[in-house]
């Protein structure tokens, strides 16, 4: 049964973000703030970089503020001033990406002013931005969110999101696939990957795909076939999932931007689940120098090794 999700705090949150942005910009604490602003379509939002305190009023937070802005601090940082501290508006899921990037020496905590958002959820990409947030229209990632209130930020508006337990779609889908035979799973993924047009939107939007030259673009040697054919597509998605294993904390931007609706976050969630089970590791909660795949324990499981 579809139920409305309470997003009434978002207007107060918006004001709080505006006030904070106004303060830090006018006090000169930061040289820019990355946040969300209304976009042209009704109810929609888009990322914005503001450098003047007078622009602080442009900032909003709503259920259509879906983007993970962390990506603007790494490879998409063209519009970000090079010098000075940067303010950034983050949801709990986005914060996990920031934390991961700090662990990978891509960002420095002292160079950021983090404005955390108390978040009750955002819209799924399959719904129009003016839709109300309901148990039906909420993004799948929000259904299993464990970070509605971001921790360790420089500023978090005092509002408390009203949350309710929702059915975990990724967990359910992973369990469904795990119960299939290998051949059935292969058929599922073959079908999914055959849709891929190699637009690399998943790569563009991912805060962790910050390599200057992707392994998959190399031609000496060609590790992964680049043309949008099934063999290369499959290889690309396997390599992508492997490279994100232990790093991806589930902002699900890859899945949101995929024009072919490939359930990309499913692979990431599966890897996260395995790494949690194997090494009790969860990405994104604290800045860790070493991830699960760049560290080891002498007593690690090796039941699969003869």
């Amino acid at each position: 049964m579809t139920q409305a999700i309470d997003t009434s705090i978002y207007s107060a949150v918006t004001s709080a973000i505006q006030a904070e942005a106004q303060r830090i910009l006018s006090e000169g604490q930061v040289s820019a703030v990355v946040g969300y602003a209304p976009a042209r379509r009704k109810g929609s939002a888009q990322p914005v970089v503001i450098t003047e305190a007078s622009d602080a009023g442009k900032l909003i937070f709503s259920a259509s503020c879906v983007n993970n802005l962390a990506v603007y601090l790494t490879k998409a940082k063209k519009e970000i001033p090079k010098n000075g501290k940067i303010g950034i508006v983050v949801k709990g899921c986005d914060l996990k990406a920031l934390v991961g990037l700090m662990g990978e020496t891509q960002l420095k905590r002292e160079e950021l002013h983090i404005i955390g958002v108390p978040c009750a959820g955002v819209l799924a990409s399959t719904f129009q931005p003016d839709k109300a947030l309901t148990t039906e229209t909420i993004a799948p990632k929000c259904r299993e969110c464990d970070a509605q209130l971001p921790q360790g930020c420089d500023f978090v508006p005092p509002q408390q999101p009203v949350t309710q337990a929702l059915e975990k779609k990724y967990a359910a889908e992973i369990a469904r696939l795990e119960a299939l035979t290998p051949a059935e799973r292969w058929a599922f993924w073959k079908e999914q990957f055959s849709k891929c047009i190699k637009c690399y939107a998943c790569r563009q939007v991912c805060p962790f795909c910050y390599c200057e030259q992707c392994l998959c673009d190399r031609n000496k040697p060609q590790m992964v076939e680049t043309s949008p054919r099934p063999a290369g597509n499959t290889a690309w998605h396997i390599v992508r999932a492997m490279h994100l294993a232990g790093r991806c904390a589930g902002c699900a931007e890859c899945e949101r931007v995929c024009p072919m609706d490939i359930p990309l976050n499913l692979l990431n969630r599966k890897m996260a689940k395995e790494l949690k089970e194997l090494y009790d590791y969860e990405a994104g909660f604290e800045i860790k120098e070493k991830g699960p795949l760049s560290s080891y324990d002498e007593k690690d499981d090796q039941s699969f090794i003869k």
Partner: peptide
């Protein structure tokens, strides 16, 4: 040229 300094 392509190292991004993640220090993995």
């Amino acid at each position: 040229a392509s190292c991004v300094g993640c220090f993995a």
